[in-house]
Design a protein around this nucleic acid. Structure first.
Lengths: 115, 115
DNA sequence: TCATTTGCTACATTTTTGATAGCAAAACTA
DNA sequence: TAGTTTTGCTATCAAAAATGTAGCAAATGA
């Protein structure tokens, strides 16, 4: 699975539009979860493993590799950390948290949930 | 693969926090791409297939099913459309588009790209 | 009525992910 | 400084998810 980057064809989009590369990258298992978690502060490999309860070390490692190649994550003395780009991305993701809690979750509470 | 919903344990998070359910849902192949595309207007199944160049009808169908169960997409006479929730979500996703284009893509242009 | 189009299922193959074991290097500890 | 932990990560195999292709039944159009 090759790392999606802007300007390169990615899963399902040959145009290489940056947003498509980003959606491909973030659409892989745990990618957003890792970014989400790292915003709290640096984490070691094992801490990330614990956080992502069911991730395998293989997947965690490839995902970290992709995020590094895409300049969202890097290593520091304290462990893995978000880069500046990573933090910016988190800040774009962040509003989804409150929306999910305050708006989206409500839509499941209506009585007689269809389907 | 069961549909992630707020309040239910999802891939790697037993707490059922809405954001975790959302990240699980959106982290599946093509989920964000479908939302992204549908914001342009209603699409038929075949149009979505064309848009997501390499998606298989099987996957498209399950993904649409999940998005419907989660109140982001519904069917209309004109085809599949975003619900109000779906449009709200798109609007949260939208800033990622310009960030990817104007900020993130730049990070790949530096001379001597490492790695 | 006959040909298209549409939404979707079936099924075999490939790709991705998970689970588990475990190793080499670094960091403690006694 | 020898022994124990911890840490980052690889290897391997099984399970799950996605793809590719064919094709069918219902709706639409000519």
């Amino acid at each position: 699975m090759n790392t999606p980057k802007p300007g390169m064809p990615v899963r399902g989009s040959k145009t290489g539009q940056p947003i498509m590369a980003l959606l491909d990258l973030l659409g892989r298992s745990w990618a957003m979860g890792i970014v989400w978690h790292l915003y709290q502060g640096p984490s070691t490999f094992r801490e990330l493993q614990d956080y992502c309860e069911s991730i395998s070390p293989t997947t965690l490692n490839t995902r970290l590799g992709e995020l590094k190649k895409c300049h969202l994550v890097e290593r520091s003395l304290a462990g893995y950390v978000l880069t500046e780009y990573g933090r910016e991305l988190y800040e774009l993701l962040e509003p989804m948290g409150s929306w999910a809690r305050h708006r989206w979750a409500k839509s499941f509470e209506e009585k007689g949930s269809k389907k």
